[in-house]
Design a protein around this nucleic acid. Sequence first.
DNA 1: CATTTTGTTCAGTCAATATTGAACAAATGC
DNA 2: GCATTTGTTCAATATTGACTGAACAAAATG
Lengths: 161, 161
Amino acid sequence: MNLYTAAMADNNPQSVIETFIERIGLSIEADGLPRIAGRMMGFFVIHGGPVSFAEIAERLQVSRGSVSTNARLLAGLGVIERVSLPGDRQDYYQLCEQPYVRLIEGHIQRQQAMEVLVRDVRKKIPAALKPTRARLNELHGFHKTTVQQLQILVKKLENQS
Amino acid sequence: MNLYTAAMADNNPQSVIETFIERIGLSIEADGLPRIAGRMMGFFVIHGGPVSFAEIAERLQVSRGSVSTNARLLAGLGVIERVSLPGDRQDYYQLCEQPYVRLIEGHIQRQQAMEVLVRDVRKKIPAALKPTRARLNELHGFHKTTVQQLQILVKKLENQS
DNA sequence: CATTTTGTTCAGTCAATATTGAACAAATGC
DNA sequence: GCATTTGTTCAATATTGACTGAACAAAATG
């Protein structure tokens, strides 16, 4: 029994999983990644186990080129990883451990970059412009607190698996 | 003395503020908003006080149409607000209190939507597919914990102002 | 009331990016 | 060595969404 027949068991045929994959795709796209990367992630949440390069292309109805590009993208993010299956020369991919933590870590890095940027600008604003400096302080505090909180989030996620 | 002459006091003339505004723009763009909205935000961090519709257009070198659209977008997010100045029929805008908290609240809502989505899908996956359900549980936990943590972040930000 | 100022809207343009598909290279098996 | 399988690369295409600017409406001014 495969996943599609399984999904067919409920009211809306195989569409439950399909739409799930699609929605994850959109959500990930909103995160700045290509939609196909998002759909692949959704697919891996459902399938998990090693999936062949060819199967990804077929199930998601995308070109081999896209699979290649986006698989490497996701692998670079630490969301999926390549595994080799003995006796098969295709590439296989599977979900990493802690796949979501990696995404958060990306956010942290961007926030940290912003924190530095804001601090640098503040340093260069003349002391006379008090309100501007105050606003920059507030923005700096925002980024700093956000980073701290995201780091706590990462710790919690690491524990809960 | 205006802000540009002030910025000129340091090594790289008025470019410090310009590039700051530009970088904020890019950062906000990565958050899913139009770049002009981001540049406007950067501008308001520097200027804060009521700024006229016309001045925004001029300083940022964008069309009135863009100012109109993006100002309303930011106002909708609760980042800036319209104020009226007696004796002037132009629109003026200024930074809201707690401007950044609002952005986080947007994230929270999206994460909550995802949490619901994942929970719904999980409910429809047959119990026999244990590993799939386990992965959905993990994803659900991810969103749930993220929401909690973001809510704590909001509280902290509210206190620190 | 006519004129000017000001914000909104929307069709059209433009730019950025994702996606494809074909050409290619590397590896495998015969 | 030749044919086949498989992943990569890249130029061409498609798609998406931002941005503009002109037409418009509302309000103020004289």
